[in-house]
Design a binder for these strands. Structure first.
Lengths: 215, 215
DNA sequence: CTTACTCACAAAAAATTTTTGTCAAAAGTA
DNA sequence: TACTTTTGACAAAAATTTTTTGTGAGTAAG
């Protein structure tokens, strides 16, 4: 899931980037203008805007975006006191807000909540550079989008969910097929071959006699 | 068998060295004085002296040597005409002579004849640097003398006689033992091990599954 | 006491088996 | 039909096992 973060406080932004990057793909900017151009050039799944930034405010930015029918869900960050903006924020199309100082876990909860709301729960970040939509089976990787088949997608997701652990062929068969329609292990081998074309050989490692490991 | 050759004619000496080196160990010198000092420093099995050399003559040299009880067999080389020296030569202790120009095979025959006479037939040249006395089992190598056991000596001789050919363990067993007392192939392995200590690993090469080759 | 040989085990090389990678193509599915 | 899934054949790679060779110690015979 791709997040566009607008935050001018260097300390806070670095904390946020560190935290959010564990789970999402984060693009960060200090200025409203850049945020605007970034949102035009790319497509994001979530905006997180600080209300007060040097060259404007998040509310104006959001109003602008919404006028172009950009319905990307948006969370505002606001100073504890400054709840005066609240009403305006929601009027301009905000979906949630969070007051500084805040607990990172709270932010995480709110993001997950929005994901649920907007049906984004099936976008999974794989490593630093890739994202997989587990419904459409689209794999996004450095602006390039690949169309995986369903099985490829399932296998990739399974490997990712158990990354850094060696997973045997049998385990994969057990978990990705039902008992009546187990294929031979040949099927896994060809799937692995295909996946490697997309995610790169270096990420799917074979441990002889044991299985495969996603890194 | 080690030969000391005294011959000042460069053409003839190079021919002689080439020919004799195939069978014997040859040390060559142009001058009588050097011949004298060489004979004192080393021990040779045969002298081949030209009667006429720049700084003296072979006869004087031989007389000198004999006076020190050096009984090394000696062959003189003399010009066809100048048989006048003949008597003096024999008186001074020569064992044979050969007249220029001569056939190399003739020289070879005379040398072999002397070997027979003096019981030197069991000295065999191995490669460029070694000699094996097949009776005493003494292996001479760069001034160092090693005492081989009988079997070591027999094996080395067999290998040498068939050098550059791969010889199987079975062939060695067949040829170096009699039928009733064939040892196991272990015996060969230990003999090879010992021989390699003497002649150097590089000269006895193993061809896996086939045998050993002397080079 | 030396020699000839055997034995046990280490080291090296080769042969064999197992596992994995790859491709083409068959079979299944919408 | 077009696409996904699976299979099967074979190549490539890795591991295992077997065979051969090297080495030192030790024994028996002369």
């Amino acid at each position: 899931m791709k997040i566009l973060l607008l935050e001018d406080d260097t300390v806070l932004s670095s904390i946020l980037i560190d935290f959010l990057s564990e789970t999402y793909s984060v693009t960060h900017t200090y200025s409203m203008k850049e945020a605007l151009s970034l949102s035009e050039e790319n497509s994001y799944d979530l905006y997180i805007f600080d209300i007060n930034v040097p060259d404007g405010d998040g509310i104006t930015l959001l109003r602008e975006l919404r006028s172009f029918h950009d319905e990307t869900p948006t969370i505002f960050i606001t100073a504890f006191h400054d709840i005066s903006y609240l009403k305006k924020a929601f009027e301009s199309g905000a979906n949630d807000f969070i007051r500084k100082p805040f607990d990172l876990e709270e932010l995480y909860g709110r993001i997950e909540n929005i994901k649920r709301h907007f049906g984004l729960f099936n976008i999974v970040k794989l490593g630093d550079a890739m994202e997989l939509n587990t419904q459409t089976h689209l794999l996004t990787c450095k602006d390039k989008t690949e169309h995986l088949t369903q099985k490829e997608s399932e296998l990739l997701l399974y490997l990712y969910k158990h990354k850094n652990r060696v997973i045997s062929t049998d385990e994969l068969l057990q978990n990705l097929w039902n008992y009546e329609e187990l294929p031979s292990s040949d099927a896994i081998r060809t799937l692995i071959k295909e996946l490697r074309k997309y995610v790169g050989r270096e990420h799917i490692i074979n441990i002889r006699g044991e299985g495969y490991k996603f890194e």
